[in-house]
Amino acid sequence: MKKKKLLDRDSTWSFILLMPNIVIFLVFSLIPLIASFFISLTDWDLLTPMQWVGFTNYKELFSDDIFLKSLWNTIYFTLGTVPIGIIISLLLAVAVNQRIKGIKIFRAAFFLPVIASWVAVGLMWMWMYDKQFGLLNYFLDLIGIKGPPWLSSIKWAMPSIIITSIWKGIGFNMMLFLSGLQGIPESYYEAADIDGAGWFGKFMHITIPCLSHTTLFVTIISIINSFQAFDLVYLMTFGGPARATSVLVFYLYQCAFRYFRMGYASAIAYVIFFMILIFSIVQFQLQKKRITV
């Protein structure tokens, strides 16, 4: 009897204390998520009344060359950033996991791009990529290579965005790997030393297998993030030249807030949502193990 009363008291209090979260969740997460789907079934320019069109928007997507191009660019961007970014940051994590003097300074240096905003990073790199006076082409010149016009070249614009994104993301992944590395028992390496294993052998047979969980985790986060790339594209190339860097979120932004095709843009939003959902579910399953319920 007493226990039930306590449960009731707790329930009431919980409801009161959770009020802000409940309201924000309903108004800015749940309702928009459902609304987004309904809007994707309409034609709507925000001014004239909505027109119900069923799945027409979705059908149109797959015959829309710009959408298909943006879809491809998103995949290109993901394939360009994720594997290289992970390999570099894994190697870096191993390097900064050594107990040597000044290691904290090195870690801080690699981490610096993570804390800068994409906008500041974008501005910095636009100037780095300057065809004539940029630092990058200067260095290439020093070793006898004539640098490309980076951002204004159809061929090099996407690689430019990819390079900057990798540069900015390395420190983040490095820290995740580092915390994974610190979870590997020292004794494994000591045992390998006794067996006479070299640096490379230890890396391949101890570090890599022990980090498999972290690697999977970092891979999924990286994929989810690259599906959502936007800031750099908006700032550095505005999707150009000739749509060479138009990614899905950028096209969504254009359709919604430049062309005012809310229904069509919402359909793009749902495509992105489902692309991400698959990876999110895997991530959520991994994460659930880390949560003690």
């Binding site: 969740f25 749940l30 809007i39 959502q228 979120v249 969504l252 919402s266 939003a269 949502f273 991400i276």
Partner: peptide
């Protein structure tokens, strides 16, 4: 302690996965 607490929590947690771009229009 309240009924369905942990289920509610997991559902709430799952909403972290909704990307900002998907709901930005509404």
């Amino acid at each position: 302690k309240f009924r369905y607490r942990d289920v509610i929590f997991l559902v709430y947690l799952a909403t972290m996965m909704i990307p900002v771009h998907v709901t930005i229009i509404p």
